[in-house]
Design a protein around this nucleic acid. Sequence first.
DNA 1: AAATATAGACCGACCGTCGGTCAATGGCTA
DNA 2: TAGCCATTGACCGACGGTCGGTCTATATTT
Lengths: 214, 214
Amino acid sequence: MTTENRINSTRYKEIIAAARKLFPAKGYEATSMNELIVSLGIAKGTMYYYFPSKQCLLEAVVEDIVDEEFTRLKNLLHSSTAQHLSPDEKLRLLLSEYSGNQDNNRILDILNRPDNSRMYSYQLGRYIEKLAPLYASIFAPGCGEGLFNSAYLLECAEFMIAGITFLVDPGLYPWSRSQITRRMKALPFLLEAQLGALSGFFDESLQNKNTNKE
Amino acid sequence: MTTENRINSTRYKEIIAAARKLFPAKGYEATSMNELIVSLGIAKGTMYYYFPSKQCLLEAVVEDIVDEEFTRLKNLLHSSTAQHLSPDEKLRLLLSEYSGNQDNNRILDILNRPDNSRMYSYQLGRYIEKLAPLYASIFAPGCGEGLFNSAYLLECAEFMIAGITFLVDPGLYPWSRSQITRRMKALPFLLEAQLGALSGFFDESLQNKNTNKE
DNA sequence: AAATATAGACCGACCGTCGGTCAATGGCTA
DNA sequence: TAGCCATTGACCGACGGTCGGTCTATATTT
């Protein structure tokens, strides 16, 4: 198939590599197709031969980033050092790795780019879809015997990733430095609380409350 | 002052009103300044006389929306019917009102608009900044006597609003209907868990764990 | 009271740039 | 040589934004 050949071609990967540098650095909206073309030394037609639209290029770039994150975190979880950690220790390991990596990718987190929210919100969405199951899988061992609690492990993971990323990442909203540090200090407690609540420490009153409603 | 006159003028409010209709309906990026101008029957120069850029118009529109939400929820909280509710009942009242209102504003939630994430992410940010304290204030009575728990009330509110909105609102990411309903079913439990953890039901082991780290 | 000056709301032709299109073409393989 | 890709770049309409200027209503001067 033609499309498949295109995706596996060198050009395709070259373009994605260039976009992976420019999109986060300059912002998605602020980066023009022309800039990419010039920096690659190719013609406009070539660009649109591989990517029918700028939106498609964005999606391919995000897919590339999220895929990389996925395998990285998966390998980290199955590494010999992390294998025998407790669920909450594993979770904190994953989260610290994630936020740490973000800081490395962005040289200047002072710089706010409102023309980048499109990329980041899409990226966060894909990230949640792909990696939330991974997060949820580490909750399971710590979870109590009640069926009810474990029914919402995935949603809990999604909830946590979404909340943390949106509130700590300056890419989606120009948070001030003090806002970010304030939240990062609160995060361990909030996660612990959420996890603790999940693991069945609660008395039955809570579960009754909820099951009654259904 | 000249600027102040402009903000209080009829024109200014007319333009915001028009943008409040078109931006959510067509999407921010997809709505051109020309469309707004034509629909208002004014000239381009007039538009840019009141708003120096499209981004500034967006911010004014979002401010308008969030302000309205703020007073609406504040009044709701102080209403005679809601005044003597328990914290978690109040919380669920606020959240249901919010999501219910969103559905009304958007006629088609099936329609996904990736060119609207810029507006929605900014709106969510402003919403959190303005309304999280309001949410946090209703947590306080249900909170235990420990100082530690109540120290993170604001962050807990921010965390909840961000997570819920991002995961349930199709404006920021094109979630499928099944994803949304799945999460909405999980929400009562997750909120209850988070609130319960806050209210001091926990044993001291959790608090010790966290205080040790500081 | 008439003439003149000032302010500011409003106009629309115009600009550079953007994302995107397409007919033409070079070069490789069968 | 025929056919197929990958590649080219001139070209397009629409976009956000600018700018010189008009018009009216109010203040100031005569």
